[in-house]
Write a protein that binds this DNA or RNA. Sequence first.
DNA 1: AAAGAATGTTGTTGACGACAACAATTGTCG
DNA 2: CGACAATTGTTGTCGTCAACAACATTCTTT
Lengths: 154, 154
Amino acid sequence: MRKRPGNGAARPAGDEIGLDALIGHAGYAVRRFQIWIFQDFIRTLAAVDIRPTQYSVMTVIGANPGLTQMAVAKRLGIERARLVHLLNSLERRKLVKRIKSKSDRRSHALHLTAQGEASLDQFKRLAAEHERHVEEKLGKQNRARLLQILADFT
Amino acid sequence: MRKRPGNGAARPAGDEIGLDALIGHAGYAVRRFQIWIFQDFIRTLAAVDIRPTQYSVMTVIGANPGLTQMAVAKRLGIERARLVHLLNSLERRKLVKRIKSKSDRRSHALHLTAQGEASLDQFKRLAAEHERHVEEKLGKQNRARLLQILADFT
DNA sequence: AAAGAATGTTGTTGACGACAACAATTGTCG
DNA sequence: CGACAATTGTTGTCGTCAACAACATTCTTT
């Protein structure tokens, strides 16, 4: 017989709550960490209203001008259907432009506008600040190890 | 002057696409990894139709019977509003039951049903299989390091 | 006893992944 | 060459998820 209140009394949170099998699951730790890191990114770049996915799209386009939407979507692992909306938003803000391709009239060549390039520089500075928060949270060496461990997924 | 096709020719994906600043961002790597690991979890537990969040809720309740909904939500970092729907679903499946608390008539004491406990054992075996997939993907030592690095977020 | 806080519930919003269908265009292959 | 399949961008739906706001019921505080 276990000593336990007879199912009627709820336990608010006075004593510690064990996670049991969850502590051995990488996915659980990764999810919690991912929530934290995205919140910090969004907060750090709130002044420029840029979210992680938008930042990743602009960075890839900036480094590889002329890419197709399919190419960007594949490279970043996002749905091409979703990229359409992301680009619509970025294009409305004059940060990105779609140029109709001559060689393949189905596709668009993606480029940053002049304003987009200037803005991206600022975004990168803010993102670097966010990354310093990560370093403070994890420790310099742990962050480096983490990047190394997950390098295959990029 | 940069040598570059005159903005009209799109680049499908022939050559490699550089990630530029993204490779130095832990958040990007974590996001890609999280997508992979959740997909594997869902696939591995597809036969029992259990998703990561449902598994985490049942595991915590199983290890700490009588917890309040607020206590579970806080411990797992999920919205209490969201936990309501999760518990509705689990209760419909006769895996979890809400018992009205005598001491605090606002709250519910959460317990696994007998079927819930038996099912959770099976879920844990499948989750362990999923964790072996993670180990194969990352390497035994890298997975251990990852868990250690992110231990503070659990 | 009155004011305030906590708990569970309902609802809305927006980001996100997954999927299906479609038109326009290109590639393939008989 | 011409029929058929594949690709690209687009639109739409569905379900998951985090974040917030509002509410009734029930403690807690003062």
